[in-house]
Every structure is written in structure tokens, then in C-alpha cells.
Design a protein around this nucleic acid. Structure first.
Length: 418
DNA sequence: TCTGGGGTCCTAGGACCC
DNA sequence: TCTGGGGTCCTAGGACCC
């Protein structure tokens, strides 16, 4: 049996831990740049606020309905996620951290009453972290996901267990096909044209048909729904094959200087992520574009891929190439909204193909990076950085409703007034 | 005026190799 | 009239996830 534990309205719940006065009130969290709604409390959902809704379209509505709004605080959510996963890992020998707010447990061979065990997980996580979670349990990952859906939607106890063929049958017969994990909008539409409305309809289809129309991936989903486990636990997160850092600017940029600062900052994030997974990248891509939503503005979008002479994770070296790339694609006369960096062709740092004609002292770079990472780990991100990253960036994110980093910064720790 | 930021996998088709 | 057989690598596009 697999369990899927999913935090309820995770970002909202993180904010509420430190603002308990917001319990039972409508609360939402916005995406970066205070753009779209990406997390909603149940009360906010009941008000009809949609996932992905642009915030500016509902400003008046939010005020009228006393909806508390937060900017995204990923430092806080990341740390809270660690705490949840730590507690969760005590409940089974095998845990897969599937996303910031979800984890699978492998309960195979565990002689426990599943109902009890699910409740113990919920209580312990709530006690240790303050985060409410839902628990779904089933014989495959897809069925555990399905069970989790019912845990959230119908169960009053926050847990749901699909452990007998009858229960599974009953659940699948009323489970909308588009809600199945692995069936997205396109497939749901395609399937509905073939009179497939529910998960149960779906598993009545012939395997060959499903494979032809939906590739092997779709067939796996079908098998999992039938109770045949095809998706194994992934205990160790595999090294990333691509790493991207990109941001929308708080204000439009029309000159190259602030964009250089932005690009250099994004490179430093990418390089850090590479070092953290002990990898180097052989290719870097820089992209910039204007605001596609604004039809009346002249539009421009361009990316450029730079193959590197030797795979690297040095911020200094990557920045040099990225700035050359930016110079090459930047065109004056546009209002730029976004820029980003993508590094690919990632290899383990122990398997870097050297070059006979290398002019870079790689040992020295490695030492500098190590020193930088040590200092920044102790004194905070970007304490030590390249001068080209600048200060007081003009491109900064809009974050008007940012909460404190209660759990990771001493000077932002919660204050209790008596 | 204001619309996020990450990732993965699969397949088909074309170019190329012997 | 007849024109082999077996591969790899790369890319673009399309689907999905949080």
C-alpha cells in the first residue's frame, strides 16, 4: 500500500501557523510579482476565487470580502516543507518527497491499522508543524492520489483508504476522468469525445487503444487505476537535467543595465543550484521578452543558446557568457517584462570533459565558489556576490504583502506580546 | 497599470552511420 | 522490373505534474 500525504492549502497554511487569527477566514497567496492567485483557503474557494486568477482583476472583490492576501514567501514555505517531510519520514522506511507539499510513503509490509495510522500521521504533523494534511491510501500511487482527493473532498476525518476492490470500484465510478493524476486537460477532452467521463469508463478501454492515443504514459495510468503498480517509489531525487531561473520584473525595463543585474542574479542562482547537486552545465541559454498580454505594445522575444567550452558551475564563468548573450539579443525600443536563464547538458562535476585549450583555472574557481557558498550559507543569500549584480535592483519583484521569514531569520522571528 | 516559475517524459521524423 | 538491413542521435512538439 502507498500513502499520499498532501498539505491542505499549503502556502495559506504556512502563513496561518504564524497568524492564527486568520484561521476560518478567507486567505490567498499570490504568485511571484503578486501576479496570480496560487493558493486559497477553503473560505476563499467558497467565495469563488479561482486558481490562477490574475490578482489585479479581483482587487475590489478581495477588499469587499475581507480576503487576506499574501505575496509568495518561498523561504518560509521551503522551511515548513522540510519540517513536514521530517515528521512524515518517521512513519515509514520509504518516503518520496514528491513536491513541496506532497509525499508518498511506502506502507508495504507494515502491520498497522491504516485508519489509525493515517490519523496518527495527521495529528503528529499538526502538532510538530501546525500544518493540516490529508492522507490518501491505496494499492498504487495513482489510487493513493485518488484516495487523497476523497480525503480532501468528502471525508470529515481528512483521510481516505481505498483498500478493497469494492471500495475502489465505487470510487472510480464517480471519479471524473480529468481529476485522475496524469490525465490533464487535453486528454480529458479527447476522452470525453469517446464517452469516457469517469476513471471507471477509462479502465474499460482496451490497452492498445489507450497506448496508441496516450502513449505508454497513459497506459501506466490505466494499469495503476486497475491496481497494478507501475510507478515505483523514487527515494532519491535524481539530479536535475535542466535548471532554470527566471523572473518577471516589478517594472518594465527599457535599458540593458538593470537587465544585466537581473541576468547576473539569475545566473548566480542557477550556478548555486548546480553546485548544490554537484553538477556542471555545458550549455547556457538566456532569454528575454516583452509582455505578451499587452497587445498594443510592440512585442519582442528572443533566446540565445551558448555552448560552453568546458562544463562549469562557476558563477563567474557562467555570468561572463550570459552577459555576452544578453548583449547579443537585447534590442532597444521595447518594454521588457521578463528575463531568464536555463542551463542544460548537465553532467556530474566528477565527469567533466576537460579541454586541451582551457584558459580557466578551474581549481581556483572551485575554491572561490566554495568560499562564497560558505559565507552565504552563514550570512544569507547574496551576501557575497558579483559586483555586476548590483544593489537596489530596479527590476525587483513586486512583493507588497510579504510575510516574515519566521523560521529562518533571527531578526524576523515571531514576537509574542503579553 | 497589473497576468508565476519551475520541471519531466514520450514520440515522430529527419539526418546520419556502417 | 528489380533497389537491404540495422542502428544512433537530435530536435520539435505535445502531453503532463506541482
Amino acid at each position: 500500500m502507498f500513502a499520499l500525504i498532501d498539505c491542505n492549502s499549503f502556502y495559506v497554511s504556512c502563513e496561518r501557523v504564524f497568524r492564527p487569527n486568520l484561521n476560518n477566514k478567507p486567505v490567498i497567496v499570490l504568485s511571484n510579482n503578486d501576479g496570480c492567485v496560487i493558493a486559497r483557503s477553503n473560505e476563499a474557494k467558497e467565495l469563488g476565487i479561482k486558481m490562477g486568477e490574475p490578482a489585479f482583476k479581483i482587487t475590489d472583490f478581495l477588499e469587499k470580502n475581507n480576503v487576506t492576501t499574501f505575496s509568495s514567501n518561498y523561504v518560509l514555505y521551503g522551511d515548513m516543507s522540510h519540517r513536514v517531510m521530517n515528521t512524515l519520514s518517521q512513519f515509514a522506511p520509504e518516503i518520496e518527497i514528491y513536491s513541496i507539499d506532497e509525499g508518498f510513503l511506502n506502507l508495504t509490509g507494515m502491520l498497522v491499522d491504516l485508519e489509525d495510522y493515517a490519523q496518527r500521521m495527521r495529528q503528529t504533523i499538526c502538532k510538530n508543524t501546525g500544518i493540516p494534511v490529508s492522507v490518501g491510501i491505496g494499492p498504487t500511487k495513482v489510487l493513493a492520489k485518488t484516495a487523497n482527493y476523497y480525503a480532501k473532498k468528502v471525508s470529515e476525518k481528512g483521510a481516505f483508504i481505498l483498500d478493497t476492490p469494492d471500495k475502489i470500484d465505487e470510487a472510480l465510478k464517480i471519479f471524473e476522468i480529468g481529476e485522475v493524476w496524469g490525465i490533464g486537460r487535453q486528454y480529458a477532452t479527447m476522452l470525453s469525445h469517446h464517452q469516457v467521463k469517469t476513471a471507471w469508463d477509462f479502465i474499460q478501454l482496451p490497452d492498445e487503444w489507450v497506448k496508441k492515443k496516450m502513449t505508454i504514459v497513459g497506459l501506466r495510468v490505466k494499469k495503476e487505476l486497475e491496481g497494478v503498480s507501475c510507478l515505483p517509489m523514487e527515494l532519491i531525487a535524481p539530479a536535475k537535467k535542466a535548471i532554470c531561473t527566471s523572473r518577471s520584473f516589478g517594472e518594465f525595463q527599457t535599458t540593458i543595465e538593470p537587465m544585466k543585474e537581473a541576468v547576473a542574479t539569475f545566473v548566480s542562482r542557477c550556478a548555486y543550484k548546480l553546485r548544490r547537486q554537484h553538477s556542471c552545465a555545458k550549455t547556457i541559454m538566456v532569454f528575454i521578452h516583452t509582455n505578451g498580454f499587452n497587445q498594443s505594445d510592440p512585442q519582442y522575444a528572443k533566446n540565445i543558446v551558448i555552448p560552453l567550452p568546458v562544463a562549469t558551475n562557476s558563477t563567474i564563468e557562467l555570468t561572463r557568457y550570459a552577459l555576452i548573450a544578453l548583449e547579443a539579443i537585447f534590442k532597444a525600443g521595447y518594454r521588457y517584462k521578463k528575463a531568464g536563464i536555463l542551463v542544460t547538458e548537465i553532467v556530474p562535476e566528477t565527469e567533466v570533459q576537460q579541454s586541451l585549450f582551457d584558459t580557466v583555472d578551474r581549481d581556483k574557481h572551485a575554491e572561490i565558489m566554495k568560499a562564497m557558498d560558505t559565507i552565504n550559507a552563514r550570512f544569507g543569500r547574496e551576501t557575497l556576490r558579483l559586483a555586476v549584480q548590483g544593489y537596489n535592483p530596479r527590476w525587483k519583484l513586486r512583493q507588497e504583502k510579504l510575510s516574515q521569514c519566521y523560521t529562518t531569520r533571527w531578526n524576523e522571528i515571531i514576537t509574542v506580546k503579553i
